[in-house]
Design a protein around this nucleic acid. Structure first.
Lengths: 104, 104
DNA sequence: CCTGTAATTCCACAGTTATCGAATTAGGTG
DNA sequence: CACCTAATTCGATAACTGTGGAATTACAGG
């Protein structure tokens, strides 16, 4: 995992709106959510949502698939997995980030 | 862990410069690093570094402690731990983010 | 082809961020 | 106190971000 990619993905998640969007998608599971459903859940105008989705897609955290007239959005789980892996491997020392030691 | 705090911390880490700063601090371990040493490692002007450090400190990811004329910076490991915890607990579904399934 | 729904793209604007030289504050030493 | 090093704060500027209404593209059905 490249540090530049990690930074871009962290930045993509680093907006309350986008984090809520992403979380909604993760919670939607494998079936994903249409943009419309996402919009109702997050409660923002369509154009704003579209911009945020675009950013999430650019970093590889989200993909879209067209089903007739609706676009289904899905979280890309492997991307999140490697991002978390980066944080743990590159940014944490084992002793300090391991569960042992102190209960946060 | 509040989603707003998570977003602010993700944003703080979501800049290549700040991510490098943070990583350097984590790697420095418990002893931390003086601002000067950090500056040499990351290679940016002091004032720029100071701003980035300030942002990291505001989100609770980094702390500073004065030792005479030098300021020692340290990564706050529990903060990273709970951020990673948030990503795993709130943004990942067990089945999809568990190590089982596929090897990323 | 006309219509309707889905979603994006266009456009504009206010607010924020990154950057860094210069000035300033903090703290120790002769 | 004068001086030195460490680091921050000030000030200014260019670039980017978030936001959302309006126009546009994409697709299906009658």
């Amino acid at each position: 995992m490249d540090i530049e990619l990690a930074a871009r993905q962290l930045e993509a998640l680093g907006s309350p709106t986008r984090l809520k969007v992403y979380r909604a998608l993760v919670r939607a599971g494998h079936d994903g959510l249409p943009v419309r459903g996402l919009q109702q859940r997050v409660g923002i105008p369509a154009s704003t949502l579209s911009h945020h989705l675009h950013r999430l897609i650019l970093t590889g955290l989200v993909v879209q698939e067209r089903q007739a007239t609706t676009l289904i959005c899905r979280a890309v789980y492997p991307a999140m997995r490697s991002l978390v892996g980066f944080l743990v491997d590159e940014c944490c020392l084992d002793e300090q980030c391991g569960r042992a030691g102190e209960a946060a």
